[in-house]
């Protein structure tokens, strides 16, 4: 009973929040709703017994991705008046597409519940989530794991290629030289005679 209640409330919150991501006018609000969606998805994973995935979602998506989005969105110069103008003209087409998609989703979902076999395999051999991941991640999935590393490397090369600029004539601070400065090198004692000036 409790599980059913928490499932339905989490599912409702995640769908409603996902709707608000698209519907809200203010991009900052959208990102905040996105965080809410991630949180309720994490809750759903915990209900399914996938506590590792749930923690991963909170750490990666909420902790890193969504916060990054928030920063980017806050830096954007958003013109709210302009945002509100186009909405009504797109509404009929958008609503039509949305309704068709919704019907299709319902059909797919109905087909799933009408079928007799459920394909989700529940692991119940006393192995924790983390252990189960560890057993396959570096063995069965070693190849794709390495390949995923290359994907990240490509992204890194891209970030550097597209943003790094070598600037000429920039004065750099070199700490080692600063520290190595001694009294003898940096200071010169001059005995000034009256009326002569320095050198």
């Amino acid at each position: 009973m409790l599980i059913a209640i928490s499932f339905y409330s989490l599912a409702f919150v995640s769908v409603a929040a996902a709707f608000m991501v698209v519907a809200s006018k203010n991009p900052v609000h959208s990102v905040l709703y996105l965080i809410l969606t991630f949180f309720s998805a994490a809750g759903l994973f915990i209900l399914m017994g996938a506590e590792f995935l749930a923690l991963l979602i909170i750490m990666v998506y909420v902790g890193a991705v969504a916060v990054l989005f928030l920063f980017v969105v806050m830096m954007l110069d958003v013109d709210f008046v302009e945002l509100k103008q186009g909405f009504l003209s797109y509404l009929p087409v958008g609503a039509l597409v949305a309704i068709i998609l919704l019907l299709e989703m319902l059909m797919v979902g109905a087909a799933y519940f009408a079928g007799e076999t459920k394909t989700v395999v529940v692991r119940d051999n006393g192995v924790s989530n983390l252990e189960a991941f560890g057993q396959v991640l570096y063995t069965d999935y070693a190849g794709v794991f390495e390949a995923a590393g290359f994907v990240l490397l490509v992204a890194m090369i891209g970030a550097i290629v597209l943003t790094l600029r070598k600037r000429e004539g920039v004065r750099k601070q070199i700490p080692s030289e600063q520290i190595a400065r001694t009294k003898e090198k940096g200071l010169k004692m001059v005995d000034i005679k009256p009326g002569v000036g320095i050198e």
């Binding site: 794709v144 995923a148 290359f150 994907v151 490509v154 992204a155 891209g158 597209l162």
Partner: peptide, 22 residues
């Protein structure tokens, strides 16, 4: 999984190459 990883590796490199003349 391999399909997706392959596509992403290829596309990420292509995105960067498209904007290479930054």
């Amino acid at each position: 999984l391999a399909l997706y990883i392959g596509i992403e590796m290829q596309s990420l490199a292509l995105y960067i190459m498209a904007a290479f003349n930054r």
